[in-house]
Deep mutational scan, measured.
Amino acid sequence: NKFNKELQWATWEILNLPNLNEEQVKAFIDSLRDDPSQSANLLAEAKKLNDAQA
């Protein structure tokens, strides 16, 4: 389904953001699992944090 694909994509993207530490990655992945419908928003937040920590 749509959420499953978005969840998989967001998870992959977050795992590959180079500037997030392990705790941050875990927190984003946990949030994705808690509410897959928020995957686009969570991915945007993760990318923003990744850029800020570059």
Rank of each mutant, 00 (worst) to 15 (best):
N1A: 02
K2F: 09
K2R: 07
F3N: 15
F3T: 15
F3P: 15
F3M: 15
N4T: 07
N4R: 03
N4L: 14
K5P: 15
K5F: 03
E6D: 10
L7V: 11
L7W: 06
Q8W: 11
Q8M: 08
W9D: 10
W9P: 02
W9L: 14
W9K: 12
W9R: 13
A10L: 07
A10D: 03
A10F: 14
T11G: 02
T11L: 10
W12I: 08
W12V: 07
W12K: 06
E13A: 07
E13D: 04
E13L: 06
I14L: 10
L15V: 06
L15R: 07
L15Y: 09
N16W: 06
N16L: 11
N16G: 13
L17Y: 07
L17I: 01
L17P: 00
P18V: 05
P18Q: 09
P18F: 08
P18T: 11
P18L: 09
N19K: 04
N19E: 04
N19G: 05
L20W: 00
L20V: 02
N21L: 09
N21A: 10
E22K: 14
E22S: 11
E22V: 13
E22W: 12
E23F: 11
E23A: 11
E23G: 11
E23I: 11
Q24M: 04
Q24V: 04
V25T: 08
V25S: 06
V25P: 00
K26A: 13
K26E: 14
A27D: 12
A27K: 11
A27T: 11
F28R: 02
F28S: 01
I29D: 00
I29R: 02
D30G: 11
D30H: 09
S31L: 12
L32E: 00
L32K: 00
L32N: 00
R33K: 15
R33N: 15
R33D: 04
D35W: 08
D35N: 11
P36M: 10
P36S: 09
P36V: 06
P36A: 05
P36K: 02
P36G: 03
S37N: 07
S37K: 08
S37I: 06
S37R: 06
S37L: 07
Q38T: 11
S39A: 10
S39E: 03
A40K: 12
A40I: 11
A40S: 13
A40N: 11
N41V: 12
L42A: 05
L42I: 12
L42V: 12
L43D: 00
L43H: 03
L43V: 15
L43E: 02
L43W: 04
A44S: 09
E45W: 14
E45K: 10
A46I: 02
A46P: 00
A46W: 01
A46Y: 03
K47M: 14
K47Y: 12
K48V: 15
K48S: 10
K48I: 12
L49F: 05
L49G: 01
L49A: 06
A52I: 12
A52N: 06
A52H: 13
Q53F: 07
Q53V: 06
Q53D: 04
Q53P: 04
Q53Y: 07
A54Y: 07
